[in-house]
Amino acid sequence: MREAMGKELARLGELHQDLLVLTADVGDSTRASYFREKYPERYFNVGIAEQHLVDFAAGLAAAGKKPVVVNFAMFLMRAWEQMRNTVARMNLDVKFFATHSGYSDSGDGSSHQSLEDIALTRVLPNFAVVVPADPIELVKALPEILAHRGPVYMRTGRDYSPPITAGLEYEFKLGKAQVLREGDDVSIVGAGVVLWDALLAAEELRKMGVGATVINVSTVKPMDEALIEYYARKTGRIVTVEEHSVIGGIGSAVSEVIVKRYPVPMRFVGASTFGRSAKSQRELLDYYGINSSSIVKAAMEVVG
């Protein structure tokens, strides 16, 4: 994911002359460095200083620039208050590209993993929150995100990126969800790499005679409420899956829509506590039960 993000950002630097890339000493790890190589004068490493990073970007945005803050999702949370009090409150055009989210920084352990950032950013007024499924969708999403005026938080992982949207023809639009697969009995809703497990689960469920719709809510906020309602009505049951705490994340966001528009039984697959070190993100997803077998189990619970 970071490779695709770094390369695409460097490419888009040519189209947007006002595009600036800022980081807090993680340019190489996040691949923001690709932009630095092409446009050193539009690249800022502010040092290991996340709070300053966010407000400095805010000032640049107020002066008409288009700053993109690139950092580990976890370390951006350190500057949540700056995101709230300056960027959100003034509704400034600052983009946040958060890498290494979820368990993707598997080796570094819980201090570097981020299972709370969707909750923290989607609660901010004026913020949009985007979680691309894979590098293909990320490349589709970036121009849309940059064209949008106002703060956007885009959450990506590190390297692990199963091809979820490969071969699918669609235009990425902020606020629009995509249906990856149709089925009548249950809807599996999620965003990010875990949609791979959602698709595997849907295939398992098919073998068991259960039809599953898989919905990619890559824009977590604003949520595509009409589409969620449509599939709540159509399938009557929903399972959400996310590489994030089940408190406040994608499951919560979907349930807020469902409770309001068309309540149906739901189950939530996601994290309930901190992560730990492991050799890979995949290993951690399985260890914490955020995988296809958990999704199948949750689906069978609501299908009954």
């Binding site: 709070q51 300053h52 966010v54 407000d55 400095f56 970007a57 805010a58 000032g59 640049l60 945005a61 107020a62 002066a63 008409g64 620039k65 700053p67 208050e81 700056q82 009090n85 300056t86 409150r89 003034m90």
Partner: peptide
Amino acid sequence: DMSTGSLGQGLSFGLGVAKGIKMS
């Protein structure tokens, strides 16, 4: 020119504005 109230944030923002002005 800036929404403030939580301390310590004005200078970071001010530096961003000043740099943005210079870049332009």
